[in-house]
Each structure stands twice: as C-alpha cells, then as structure tokens.
Simulated assay, not measured.
Amino acid sequence: MTEGTSNSSVWLTVGATLLILWALMGCASLYMHFAVGPGDGPGATDFDRQLYASLPTWYGVVYIVAVLSGLAGAILLLMRRSAAVVPSAISVVAVLIQFGWMFLATDTIEMKGVWTTYFPAFILAVQLFQLWLVTMAKGRGLLR
C-alpha cells in the first residue's frame, strides 16, 4: 500500500462512517414518520395534520427508498464496493422527488415559510456529497 492509498483509505473510511451515521438518523426519522407521524408530533398544527393525512402512498415509498438506498450506498462505500454508485444515485433521485413534490405540489412554503426548505436542502446536499464521494472514489480506483 502506498502512502497515497493509505491517506485515501483514512478519509474514505471517515467519510463513509459519517454517511452511515447520517443515514441511521434518516432511519430514525423514517421510523418516526410512520410510527408517530409528523401530524402528531409536538407543535403540530392543523396544517401539519391535514398535510400528513393527505400524503399519497407513493410518497412514503419514495421516502423509504431515499433513506434505505442512501444507507446501502454508504455501507457499500465503507466496504469499498463500486456498487455504491447505484444506490447513492437512487437516493439523490428519491430525495429530489420527495421534496420536489412536497414544495411544488403543496402549499407548505406558503403556510410554513421558506425556512422549511432549509433542512431538506441540506439533506439533498449530503446525498449529493455522498454521490460525489462514491463517484470520485470509484474514479480513483479506490472501490472494487
């Protein structure tokens, strides 16, 4: 192993580990979404309850796909598998569908304010970072 490969191994391990922890937080959020529901959480408004009750079934499926494919991509990255590219890309697409629909097809921004888009934008940024990291690692021959 060369010095460059050793350094690459460290930052790739750290990055993949942080992405796995991030994805596990996503799993906790996913669980809460289905177990409690955003409409029943503390501080939920009538709008939140109505919105949650009106979510189409496919929205939940896309949410599951976004979280679990992100987790799978991060785990595969930690395992140094080039197969990490596909689930990482699927996660980005699912996040775009999930939040794109939420903000374009509902009046969430009008009712709750533009600040409600900040955390979803951060989620998208993390998933784009994961896709970039996986793609870059594959391009440098760090994945098999």
Rank of each mutant, 00 (worst) to 15 (best):
F122D: 08
P56K: 10
I123K: 01
I20C: 07
P87G: 11
G26Y: 07
A44W: 01
Y63M: 09
V62W: 02
F99C: 03
A125D: 13
Y31I: 14
S91K: 10
V36G: 02
A89S: 15
R80Q: 11
T17H: 04
A105K: 03
G60H: 12
L30V: 04
L21E: 05
A94E: 08
R80C: 12
I97A: 14
V14G: 04
F103I: 01
G73L: 10
G4R: 14
V93L: 15
F103K: 01
L21W: 08
T117L: 05
M79R: 15
C27D: 10
T2S: 15
I90V: 15
W58A: 12
R140M: 08
T5C: 02
T5L: 06
R81P: 01
F122L: 11
F34K: 06
L68N: 14
S8F: 13
W58I: 15
G37D: 10
Q127K: 15
L30T: 04
P38L: 04
T17L: 13
M79Y: 12
G41Y: 07
S82Y: 04
G39Q: 03
A72Y: 05
T5K: 12
Y52C: 04
I109C: 00
Y63W: 14
E3S: 15
Y118H: 06
G73V: 02
R140W: 12
F103L: 02
A16S: 15
V92S: 14
L68Y: 08
G141L: 06
P38R: 08
T45G: 08
V92F: 14
L12E: 05
G60Y: 12
A28H: 09
E110S: 04
V114L: 13
T57E: 05
Y118Q: 03
G43T: 09
L30A: 07
M111E: 00
A89F: 11
L104H: 08
D46V: 03
D48G: 00
G73I: 05
H33S: 12
S91I: 07
G15Y: 03
G139E: 08
T13F: 11
I20S: 03
A53I: 09
S29M: 11
G73N: 13
P42W: 10
L96A: 15
T57K: 07
P120D: 07
M25C: 08
M79K: 14
M25A: 07
A74K: 09
G60V: 01
R140E: 10
M102K: 02
W22V: 03
P42F: 09
F103V: 00
L76Y: 05
V67Q: 07
T17P: 02
L143F: 11
L30N: 03
L142M: 06
G41P: 00
V92G: 10
L77P: 01
A66V: 09
L131H: 06
W101K: 00
L133I: 01
S91A: 15
P120T: 05
E110Q: 10
L78G: 08
A84D: 09
G41E: 14
T116R: 03
Y118G: 02
W132Y: 15
E3G: 04
G4H: 13
